[in-house]
Design a protein around this nucleic acid. Structure first.
Lengths: 189, 189
DNA sequence: GATTGACAACCTACCAGTTGGTAGGTAAAA
DNA sequence: TTTTACCTACCAACTGGTAGGTTGTCAATC
């Protein structure tokens, strides 16, 4: 296998492990079994678990940012954009996976500082996008003018992360969308 | 030390560990250090980590249910009750702790089935209380009659769990209350 | 076009430290 | 005299990580 194939496979399997059992609970041995190379060989691609963890967040964030940019360009009203944003979470849950940074945030105190910083950064990127989307929604008149975009962004992110967590625990992904819809409706004019 | 003292101390320290680093990441060695008895002695009180985990949830739920009952009896309108409910989460975050079952839910796939069931049960208890509170709010006229209490309960729980997660990751507990207030306002008449 | 050297990708074999858990003993309380 | 609460001393299994060797690919050199 080429470098990129293996590296990509490692990242993909590691992500899936983190999003189900958490960062602390997954091991190089698990990963080795899934990807089909020896435990020691993983260290060739990612010298430490921390470096793997960081690469994981970086690659996830990169993908997510690309999706957000695409979403920004679609001709949708604010409501439509927010619902489409929420679908990222719904889709993850359907695949029986927690949102990555939600899963990581829960064990934050255990994470090495470099990873903690990245999780925080990840959330700020999301909040920025939401805030901007809401702000332009206020200008275009389809979001209530009386609310602070900053706070509303926090509300949308919180609801989706929380709904994912609850849906995950109840093993019922269908609970996310109604929650999101309710929030989005309450923000719209 | 008496049985109860030690047992209580073990539960308290274990809870604090789970709520910060997660279930997978804390060990009997950590606990031994904090409580001041040898690692092996912990097994006298809790033969397995699973039994400790289960006792943890049980005791947490018991306390929480008592608080919920007290809250139900207070002479508050629905809004007041929901805000007071939210304060449990705010208080936890102030002490730099995640909500217990939020922390556990994130690593759910790693938990033994007996614990998974308890986490699920815990959320259902919360949803029941919220639903009932909202239902009586509809009757008394201070909650919008058009919304389904079942869905609204899910929304409130999700928002609080999510807001806790985000606040925890951003190390800023002040973000919870505005999110809750926004949701509660959107449910009120 | 064959030979060489460098390097990437993997391997086996190992390491010290930690994990949850057990066996069996002691001292004190009931 | 039995039971409770704790102890020391151990265990196999697993943790992330290292050392050093083998193999295949690929480019520069003869």
């Amino acid at each position: 296998m080429t470098t990129m194939d293996t590296k990509t496979a490692l990242l993909a399997e590691a992500e899936s492990l983190v999003r189900t059992v958490g960062y602390a609970a997954f091991s190089y041995a698990d990963l080795s079994e899934r990807v089909g190379i020896r435990k020691a060989s993983i260290h060739h691609h990612f010298p430490t678990k921390e470096s793997l963890g960081n690469a994981l967040i970086d690659s996830y964030l990169e993908r997510f940012q690309a999706e957000l940019a695409k979403l920004s360009e679609r001709r949708l009203d604010t409501k439509g954009k927010l619902l489409a944003y929420g679908d990222f979470f719904v889709q993850g849950l359907r695949d029986r996976q927690m949102p990555l940074c939600g899963a990581l945030a829960a064990d934050a105190a255990y994470l090495p500082p470099s990873m903690q910083g990245r999780v925080e950064h990840f959330f700020r990127i999301h909040l920025e996008w939401l805030e901007q989307t809401l702000r332009s929604g206020v200008s275009s008149g389809d979001v209530r003018a009386d609310l602070k975009p900053e706070r509303a962004a926090l509300l949308v992110l919180s609801t989706l992360q929380g709904a994912s967590l609850v849906a995950w625990a109840l093993k019922d992904p269908s609970t996310i969308r109604p929650a999101l819809k309710e929030v989005v409706d309450s923000l719209a004019t």
